[in-house]
Amino acid sequence: MGKLNDILEFKNGKAKKTNHGNIPIYGGNGVLGYCSDSNFENVLIIGRVGVYCGSVHIEESKCWISDNAIAGLPKKSSYNYYNYYLLKSLQLNNKQVGSSQPLLTQDILNNIGVQIEFDKEKQKRLVASLLAIDQKIELNNRINAELEAMAKTLYNYWFVQFDFPNEEGKPYKSSGGKMVYNSILKREIPEGWNVDRLQSYINFKRGISYKSNEISDIKGKEFLNLNSFSLKGEFKIEGTKYFIGKYNQESLVSSGGLVVAITDVTRNADIIGKAFIVPNIFEDGALISCDVVSITSERLNKFYLEQLFNSTYYHSYIKYYASGTLVLHLNLNGINWFNAILPPVGLLNQFEEFCKPILKKKAVILKENKQLIELRDWLLPMLMNGQVTVK
């Protein structure tokens, strides 16, 4: 037996604004943005406050840890991936203090008693299988990112550059297709295309409110929340929580539904307004938190809206409808009042047919990741408490 301060030194993070650097800024829910300098390297990141209190991440390279997280630095006698999996096994969210605002402190972490393997080589052997599973999950994530990039590329080509196929199958604008000036957007769009506010074409369904004791990491109904969104708007399976309270069936969002983040804890509003399509990996769909809304439309299909909501142009507009201090909240009028280009239905249908198989391929990979995560989480406590040994 030992205490966490036998293998880790804990330090508080510090507030940091994002800029154009490539060094990740970490908060309790993972990467919040990027900057050009660092305050830690080869470090664990532990959520310090709020809904992500007790979450654990690891970063081998240089990074910046923000003030809503605690840094865990390995002491010489410890292997940091062992420390990472050990902390993951402790369910640190159960060690927090405070009801209205959950909190973890260095003092709490320092004094947690736990069974520790102090031999560094044995530490490496213990977590080798867990690390291999996580590396496979990361490889799958990169494959899905490449699939997503294919849909984004075609969206930009057709609906931003307006080089969709004309009647002869040639790029419309590049081949001299007629463009007309639109006074609302103050730029040219293809002849025959329209522009209108989204409010005439979309419907919202809000997510459900919850208490911290109704959320679980391991059991219950799948619960999509703010941590389900990457900075780019992609679905993060590792952000899935589970709801163990009571709910109505009408609150479920079916697989294939479009969901949008309407709160944000990043300092640059990186996630606010971002969207993803719920993958077909949840039986009977999933619940969404009050930080999320689902959006439906008869005129504009979900594949077009997903790419629109995740575009740089749209995000530079929508983030100004978010307000708050520690947590940003989106005024839904910002979505309603957005002047969107309305492409012809036939072209939207072609885009949908291109994106459908991509969504299916991504779901297959996500299902594999879901199984890998379940295997990892099953092995984790047994390896850490000595029920399973590795020679």
Rank of each mutant, 00 (worst) to 15 (best):
L224T: 04
F229M: 01
A261R: 02
V253P: 04
I262R: 03
G233L: 06
A286S: 15
K232H: 08
D284P: 07
G245P: 07
D217E: 14
K236W: 00
R267D: 08
N225W: 01
I288Q: 07
Y242K: 10
G285R: 03
E238K: 14
V265G: 05
V278T: 10
I281L: 12
L231M: 11
I281D: 11
G285N: 07
E238P: 03
K221P: 08
L226Q: 11
L224M: 12
N227V: 00
K241F: 00
A261H: 01
C290H: 07
A275W: 03
K236Q: 11
K274C: 05
I244P: 02
E222R: 11
I237P: 04
E214N: 12
E234A: 14
T240N: 12
D284C: 11
V265W: 01
D270G: 09
G257K: 06
A286L: 11
F243N: 05
L287T: 04
G273L: 04
G220D: 10
V260H: 04
G273Q: 01
K211Q: 13
L258K: 08
K241H: 05
I277W: 08
I215Q: 02
E214R: 02
V259Q: 08
S251V: 04
I215D: 01
V259S: 07
G239L: 00
S294M: 08
N280P: 07
K236F: 00
E222A: 15
I244M: 10
N213T: 09
N280S: 15
E222H: 14
G233A: 09
N213Y: 13
N280Q: 14
K241V: 00
T263S: 13
K232T: 15
K246I: 10
A261V: 03
K274D: 04
T263H: 01
I288W: 00
R267T: 14
N248C: 08
K219H: 11
L231C: 00
V260K: 02
G256W: 01
Q249G: 07
P279S: 11
E234G: 12
Y242P: 03
K274W: 00
E234P: 03
S251Y: 11
I244D: 07
E238R: 12
E238C: 05
P279M: 11
C290A: 14
I295F: 05
I271C: 02
D264E: 10
S294L: 05
S216M: 08
G257N: 08
N280H: 12
I215T: 00
I272L: 03
I215F: 03
E283G: 03
L252F: 09
E283P: 05
E222S: 15
V278E: 09
L258P: 03
A275D: 10
I237R: 05
S230M: 02
V253R: 11
E283N: 15
F276K: 06
Y247Q: 05
K246Q: 13
F229H: 01
I244H: 06
G273M: 08
G245E: 03
G239E: 03
Y247I: 06
F229A: 00
G233Q: 09
A261G: 12
I262M: 01
G233F: 02
G220V: 01
V260R: 01
I237K: 02
S216F: 06
S230T: 13
I281N: 12
E250S: 15
I262G: 00
K246F: 06
T263P: 09
V259I: 15
S228T: 13
K219V: 06
G233K: 10
I288E: 09
S212H: 08
K219P: 03
